[in-house]
Simulated scan of single mutants.
Amino acid sequence: MATLDQTTRNYLRKLRQDIVFSETTRDQHLTYHTTWGLFSPKNLDHGSLLLLDYLQINEDDDTLDLGCGYGPLGLTMARLAPKGNSLLIDKDFVAVDYSRKNAELNNIKNAEVILSNGFSQVEDRQFDLIVSNLPAKTGKELYYLYFYDALERLNPGGHIYVVTISGLRKFIQRAFQEVFGNYKKLKQGRTYTVAVAQLPK
């Protein structure tokens, strides 16, 4: 069996420690604990920051963060909607663990985090806002599952916001028109595009 020298052991021990950073978005200061293997572990990615900039949210909205990672979207929404409830879901148990940890560390009481493959564990809960920083390398079949499942769980007048790489913007436009009956591009940059659809009231 191979033995590791002390320098290597110390390096590995450091890598296994939580990555910790703080970020202020929408006037909400949050501290995040993350780890290697989660998406954008050292800072909030530009797509999430862009989405939060264009998100319209009321203080009593019930919200869902699809693919929450370590929680930046869902926990920020919980802070922005203190009279509502924020549900964070992810299919990665490590992401769920860190979102729960970050909710507790930031004293956010109106957020719940569950392990769920897409909407599989959401049951029949309804939401005013559904948001997602959609992964770039997921098949279009999965996007359609997400969108139709979101359609069934949005309250009348509810919104779905997504941020994607800009190369997917035409597909998102077609899919939103097909599933929700409308589409609005809020911001298109070189790398990311933010879009929204709304259900009729």
Rank of each mutant, 00 (worst) to 15 (best):
L4N: 09
D5L: 15
R13C: 03
R16S: 06
V20P: 01
F21N: 01
T24L: 07
T25I: 12
R26I: 13
Y32H: 13
T34P: 12
T35P: 00
W36I: 11
G37P: 13
L38R: 15
K42P: 00
D45W: 03
S48D: 05
L55V: 04
Q56R: 15
D62P: 03
T63L: 01
D65S: 14
G71H: 12
P72Y: 09
L73C: 08
L73Q: 12
G74W: 01
G74L: 04
L75D: 07
L75Y: 08
L75K: 01
T76P: 02
A78S: 05
L87P: 07
L87F: 11
L88P: 03
D92G: 12
F93H: 15
Y98G: 05
R100S: 14
A103R: 13
A103N: 02
L105N: 09
L105E: 14
N106K: 09
I108T: 07
I108G: 03
A111N: 08
V113K: 12
L115A: 12
N117M: 14
G118A: 06
Q126I: 13
F127G: 03
V131K: 04
P135R: 15
K137L: 03
G139H: 01
L142H: 15
L142C: 01
L145H: 11
F147E: 00
Y148M: 05
R153W: 11
P156H: 15
G157Y: 00
H159N: 07
I160F: 03
R169E: 04
K170E: 10
Q173W: 01
F176A: 06
Q177E: 06
E178T: 14
Y183E: 00
Y183N: 03
K185S: 14
L186R: 10
K187M: 05
Q188N: 11
Q188S: 15
A197E: 02
P200L: 10
